[in-house]
Design a protein around this nucleic acid. Sequence first.
RNA 1: GCGCCUAUAGCUCAGAGGAUAGAGCGCCGGCCUCCGGAGCCGGGUGCGCAGGUUCGAGUCCUGCUAGGCGCACCA
Length: 597
Amino acid sequence: MVPRGSDPRLTRERALFYFGCGKVRATMGNILWQHVSERVEQALAELGVEEFDVAGTIEVPPDPNLGDYAFPCFQLARILRKAPDRIAQELAEKLGPDGLIERVDVVKAYVNFFLNRPATCERVVTEILSRGDEYGKSQMGSGRTVVLDFSSPNIAKPFHVGHLRSTIIGHSLARIFESLGYTTVRINHLGDWGTQFGKLIVAYRKFGRPERLQQDPIRELLDLYVRFHQEAETNPALEDEARAAFKALEDGGEEETRLWSEFRRLSLEEFERIYQRLGVHFDSHQGESAYNEAMEETVKRLEEEGLLTESEGALVVELEGLPACLIKKKDGATLYATRDLAAAIHRYERYQFDHLFYVVGAPQQLHFQQVFGVLKKMGFPWVERCEHIAFGHIRLGDAQLSTRRGNVIFLEELLDQAVERVRTIIEERNPQLEDKEAIAEMVGVGAVIFNDLSHNRIKDITFDWETALNFDGDTGPYVQYTHARAASLLRRGEEEGLIQGETIDVATGQLGEPEEFQLAKRLADYPQVVLRAAEEREPSEIARHLLDLCRDFNSFYHAHRILGTPQAQGRLALVAATKQVIKSGLYLLGIAAPEAM
RNA sequence: GCGCCUAUAGCUCAGAGGAUAGAGCGCCGGCCUCCGGAGCCGGGUGCGCAGGUUCGAGUCCUGCUAGGCGCACCA
């Protein structure tokens, strides 16, 4: 049987198991699920079955009329050498009702559990309100470190919607792992080195407008970048010039270094403004340029171990089943892979990480296979702890986003439009709202983040303004609105004396209506959802769970009056529990939870 | 040519090897003398194709088809 219990070491072992192989489902954290699991385990022990993943086998029936939880007995048939229907029957005989389980039914090979509704609601609400912000958190990752490499925009290119995904997926994953007790290190591996700077330097010398660079640096740098590629089509010699300029930069050329450093500074200022709006921060901004010296050591080490071979003038590491990994160009300049190798080694030496996540787009999969392959050949066992957290790219209708063609949507423009849209809606529906500007920012930015994080990260996203700026249905504003609605109810409850400060009584026997019960069951799922999001490295698990939760809450809200009823106390407690979970979930996504909007 | 990813309702997407495959958008029709209408309720013969594994496959395997992305001197 899978170990469980309050012993932190057991919990920790289990976490290692999950997060080590990623094959076993996260089933901890749901107090209802756990209760049913424990009962089934006891009953199975009586039948002589000890080694069985009960919690992972339990499921939710497709139709609530069949039960709240179900245990299918098909897999036991092989172990016990009996018909599954008969096992279900025998198992059910050993399972009587208790405080939480009202009755146990058998339908064919399924043992179905019906929970006592009032007891379930009370148990869940009590759990959430007593744990507060701690509900959904755990210490399973305590003492372990996750290093996340995310956002990592290229200097001298505008921050566009393509960078958004890495930034917010990485930010959300960092918060998710933190909430499980992991120590996190957020690294913005800035793309501040490479041939693109050769291009920019060449373009700036030929077409640059110094005064515009100061006034509108990002536009000017983008224009230069686009101009370079236009000119290079008719004048391929420019490419060679750019390579030479980068080589000069790498060799410490004074003029090149001055320009590079100016471009870098101006770009960082722009990025910092965006990060502030998104609420994202980093523990390190060590970009590619930080590894200039370390790279030499890495190359030397590769050479000493005899892994380097020469091929067409360049230095490469041959890999089995993959294209060779290019380490040095024929002119001696380094490449992306060289810098990633040096960075990975440095990170392990510095952080001794248990996980290193690269939150980088799926098109770079081969690159990471190569980098990991080289690290493996170098004999670093920790390469097994490195993971490429790939995500699909953003498509723009039929046109593809391409910095080279200047075909980009600036993230800031998207955020501004979303916020503007929210302002309009607030003026229409809630013009007397306080702090309108701050709320509009929260909701507009939240809408953009949620729209992205509600999709499976591996899928490509087709960007269109209409979807991005639609606030009805499965959207961030819907979740935030539900939170604000719950907050509003609690304010009123306080006015009526049903809530004193932060505390609220969970009155007994007041809950149990179908909508209340459904909502309580959903709330009970939350800790499990967080674990699953971590295990799958998939923030969308949380986004979708919040949507389900909000739907359940709004159904409850419309079906039952809360204030001024005999059950007001109990219902307000349920509202408070819902608000708590929405707030926690939004936090894990990096989205603000407004008290009013 | 080789490799990886994707394919579920008109559109955008969920689906943990289990029972009758679900949401949102759009469209149609309802719901405020009452707690916030960014809301709620109702309206639906869809898993690309063909094999295989399994007691059981949208889910796993193989082969096709279509789309996307990669495949050394960019990052």
